[in-house]
Amino acid sequence: MNNLQLTATDIRLGIIEAVFGAKSGHPGGALSSADILACLYFNELNIDPKNPKMENRDRFVLSKGHSCPGLYSALAQRGYFSKDLLKTFRHTDSILQGHPDMKYIPGVDMSSGSLGQGFSCACGMALSAKISGKDYRTYTLVGDGESQEGQIWESIMFAAHYKLDNLCMIIDNNGLQIDGKVSDVMNTMPYDTKLKAFGWHVIEIDGHNYDEILNAFKEARETKGQPTAIIAKTIKGKGVSFMENQAGWHGKAPNEEQYLQAKSELEAYKKSLEGGNN
């Protein structure tokens, strides 16, 4: 568990490096989902960084594609490419595009970024496994603001209709979007009753609690006949004090002073975790 926390902190450090290097990007929603990504890439997913296209690998689609500093950082930590590459995020000659690009980035299973679309693609991957009798699983991370897109609810209908129990959708429920609180901009909640009414198995967790995240993935794997939604309550900007719960940090890069502060906060936290190991 402690190792996962360390990994998540490294992912967060990578996020800060990436958006600082790009002088743009989306740190808030990347930080809120870092613990979920650590659990996926370092515990749950059946993947091989040396063979990113392994046929029977588990798939992951970042439907909230703007959070890709988190995905890229997780992939780099997992060994898909060098961590040095994170500093080139959004640079003209870099493979690390502003939103995920499956053509050039090892480990990215689907190009995404236009909200509402990645989830549909994940449904297609899960359906394909059902058609072919393969046992890989498909995971997708959806934003709570993103669920305002009608296409999300088309996918929710589709996955339940075709009983895609090999599909697990995680909602990064950090409660904030560009214009403010999700509940003020266009309320999408409650998710649990809505998703249950659509025929989904629903698990509500604290998206920063590793026991809860890992147990939810296990429960999803064991759930048959219906897809599983994990509603993960999270804190936007989690891990960097001045970014936490601030909608303004949805899509803004830190200046040098803020960068150094974020880095020192995360490094201090990492040190405290490492101390706990001794």
């Binding site: 359906l127 088309e154 209908m157």
Partner: peptide, 28 residues
């Protein structure tokens, strides 16, 4: 019938599902 999938009146999801299917070697 086992290779035919009605998506209902929801075209946007249908094209996304096709994208996902194609990444796994299907020809949708």
């Amino acid at each position: 019938p086992e290779r035919f999938f009605d998506c209902g009146i929801a075209e946007n999801n249908m094209f996304g599902v096709c994208a996902g299917l194609s990444t796994t070697g299907k020809i949708p």
